[in-house]
Nucleic acid binder design. Sequence first.
DNA 1: AAGTGTGGCGCG
DNA 2: AAAGCGCGCCACACTT
Length: 577
Amino acid sequence: MTMRWCALGRNADGRITAFTLDASGNSGDPISMERSELADFVRGIEEEHAPRWVWSDTTRWVPQLLANGVRITRCHDLRLSHAILLRSELVPNRGELAAAAAWDVGPEEPDPEPKATALFELESTRATAVPGDIEETLAEFARQRAALAASPRQLSLLIAAESAGAVMAAEMRAAGLPWDTVEHDRILREALGPRPPAGARTAIMAGLADEIGMALGQPGVSVDSPPKLLRALRDAGLEVQSTSQWELADIAHPVIAPLLHYKKLARLLTANGWNWIDEWVRDGRYHPVYVPGGVVTGRWASSGGGALQLPRMLRPVLRADPGWTLVSADVAQLEPRVLAAMSGDRAMAAAGAGTDLYAGLVSSGVVATRQEAKIAVLGAMYGSTTGDSGRLVPRLRRSFPAAMRLVDQAAAAGERGGVVSTWLGRSSPAPSDEWLEQQALASQPGATPRDEREARRVARDFGRFTRNFVVQGTAAEWALSWLANLRLRLDELPAAWAGQDPRAAPIAQASGPAFERRPHLAFFLHDEVIVHTPIELADQVAAAVTAAAASAGTLLFGDGPVDFPLDVRISERAEKG
DNA sequence: AAGTGTGGCGCG
DNA sequence: AAAGCGCGCCACACTT
């Protein structure tokens, strides 16, 4: 039998059952095992058959496999797939999925760090976790296969990409991002001065706070409390509505400079200061918790440590192990390129034919400066109507009618309370009952002008959401495809080192047994990826990153005119160890 | 004391 | 410039 899928589930008695299926869905005999046998079982099946593993929830299976040094190539994550298929307007037969309500749950809370133990802890502590037993796993898989069989092909791509994302998120969490705490401490000291006692300001911040109090004529004013600070500013004669930095920046007053400086330092200290290092960096690795599917558009969310908000000033802190280096890549203007590809807008594709789409808009005469191009494009995708951005959008409408029609139609659908879908078929959530009720009330005879105004306002809000949903969501699909393709290419690379004694290959011990001799994904942020790799393979990794981007473009959009150029950098800070 | 809401700011 | 999309996290202020 050709093994195409291998489903795993647990039994009531705590043992694990594996069910293998061929392409027709015929199953082999069930295989029952103790939890302690699972890692070896998966390793053996993976090497011989490389099936698509089918399981309830990747976060409950992969971390323990990785802790035992076992990686898998492909999976079908039933929880994430259920969420997509249940809501997708492209799935015609959603009734059975809707009836399986036990599968419609959000992501689990982050577990404590999985231990490298032979015993698997597959029980969830959460009451609302998805079912993990083998019968329910097989039943849900059958429902999803039926749904996919009745749906357009691209949904199968989306399910595969989402599932690959789940594996990659677990792998990146386990491997961690190589983090130089000495450099981090140096940056903190340079900006903030020596580490203060717990809960206290640094001396530099205290000095700035004194300056602020002096400048306002209110010694001891509370800088950390926006309401109090706002009152103090207004008492000092500054006509501000908030204490936001963008409102303060342009005011000429002695308090502004120390205040903005203080805000910068306070942010650094509380968000990414010494306490953050203590909490999140272990053994030279930052282990962020990625949450695939955590954003409605399909982007990943994160939980713990603010992985998606690492400030630029801390980028020098990312440092490869001795003998290793970091290959970083980001896509130039991913979202407008995705919009050009989705809409088939040939003029917009042509503007992006270089490496800089914004520069392309300038040279084709649509706008005068690169800055204007950026503002105009973002305004078009976000639904801006006022300011410079809103003023520039009509020019785009003339130059790129197909692209603008696509986002305008998505916005119109949202304003009507409708649902829109991404290129691969992820659908937006319907508006809330409250929203619908508000729209209904505003069209009743007794509605006040205020009712109508408010209803129109929230309608436009929802239209901006659906407008952006199709672009942001499709960009997330492109990025997932890119990453998944890259991962497969990276797994082919160690062969390139053949002829060398594998025992001589550099070891990244801190990344754990599954990653210590191979290039691996280390970080992902919407349109940006970082690979941690032995130096010898860095050029090949860079080539793989580029090739993967081309593959993603072809996978989603065929051989269309839109390309997705990358900025690829190999870290210079790594030293041969 | 613990939970919820808000302002502010970091990222794409 | 600070309006227009999506997030997470912190400190403070207010509620229970």
